[in-house]
């Protein structure tokens, strides 16, 4: 089966005053239609850079060094700006963390989405576009009477749902959701995540959900990829990542999560966050790993498959007889 979106061997660098860094280093994954992949990792792990690279919205100081991003058989990295512009919203749309603050404050929310549809699909008549927006509002759980309201009359959660409606407006094939619920409270987060799950099933969309919170990806995604210091270090189905995590960093992320269970104390991920300007030799995580050996400091780890869907970038997996 051909995947909906394939990221192959992607490397993205940033030129900074302190030198060049590799924010994304040889990352590969596939996204299928109707499935979702969660990318999880701490700030600076490269997860958001992957999202912006797929959308062709990398910052001016960023450069794609290697790789390909294949969507419906075309390499997006070779597409011209005009093609990318047409793909965005129409085929690949996005939900950003701060997007709820990006609504135009002096235009009714419904009209803004109608406008987005008419820009990307000029052939759609106004009445049909309005009808589509009313349907979308019902899908994301905003009462139709709120169509004429302005953004300031919406709560934070409702604005974020309007953004989801806007992301769905042109029937995209892929949605990239970058921290869609960060800074929202748990009740609103729960509602938004449930809305995303429902819409994914209904519209057969591929979702790439980017979050620092592994519990958010676990709530929504079929597959989870863990990123550390620009590298994908483990990827597998949700069940594999949650029940048999193989990379020490994945285990640390899971242990750092606060739960209601009283018999397990959360433990912070040890050590300081990775510095992309001063990456260590060997495995990038060895300085924070609980069980590194001498080889971890010298040798770059390679991928090991634990199942058809689960693989890890760690030497320990190798020595465990795989």
């Amino acid at each position: 089966m051909q995947s909906l979106l394939e990221v192959k061997d992607l490397t993205v660098s940033y030129t900074t005053p302190a030198g060049k860094i590799l924010a994304v280093d040889r990352v590969s994954f596939q996204l299928e239609a109707g499935r979702s992949l969660g990318l999880v990792g701490e700030s600076g792990s490269g997860k958001s850079t992957i999202g912006t690279a797929i959308l062709g919205l990398l910052a001016d100081n960023a450069r794609v060094e290697t790789g390909a991003i294949v969507f419906e058989g075309h390499n997006l990295l070779e597409a011209d700006q005009e093609t990318l512009r047409r793909l965005r919203w129409k085929k690949i749309s996005m939900i950003f963390q701060a997007a709820m603050n990006a609504l135009n404050p002096i235009m009714p929310v419904g009209d803004q989405i109608v406008e987005a549809i008419r820009v990307h699909e000029p052939e759609v008549p106004l009445t049909a576009a309005r009808q589509r927006v009313a349907d979308l509002f019902r899908q994301v759980g905003i009462p139709a009477r709120r169509l004429r309201d302005y953004p300031h009359q919406y709560s934070g959660g409702m604005r974020q749902r309007a953004i989801i409606a806007m992301a769905l407006a042109c029937n995209p094939r892929v949605i990239i959701a970058d921290e869609p619920t960060t800074a929202l409270d748990v009740i609103v987060q729960d509602r938004i995540l449930k809305t995303i799950i429902r819409l994914q099933d209904r519209f057969d969309i591929g979702i790439l959900l980017i979050s620092h919170d592994i519990s958010v990806t676990a709530e929504v995604c079929h597959q989870i990829g863990v990123m550390y210091a620009g590298q994908l270090v483990e990827i597998g189905t949700k069940e594999e990542i949650l029940t048999t995590p193989a990379h020490p960093y994945t285990r640390a992320l899971l242990e750092a999560h606060i739960t209601l269970s009283n018999d397990r104390q959360p433990a912070p991920v040890p050590g300081p966050a990775a510095d992309l300007h001063r990456l260590p030799e060997g495995c990038r995580f060895h300085g924070r790993c609980r069980r590194p050996d001498a080889n971890c400091r010298r040798q770059t780890p390679s991928w090991h498959s634990l199942s058809a869907t689960h693989k890890v970038l760690c030497r320990e997996a190798e020595s465990n007889g795989n």
Binding site: V186, D190, E219, L242, T259, S261
Partner: peptide, 8 residues
């Protein structure tokens, strides 16, 4: 409303 995983 808390994410379910890992909770009791």
């Amino acid at each position: 409303a808390l994410p379910r995983f890992g909770h009791i």
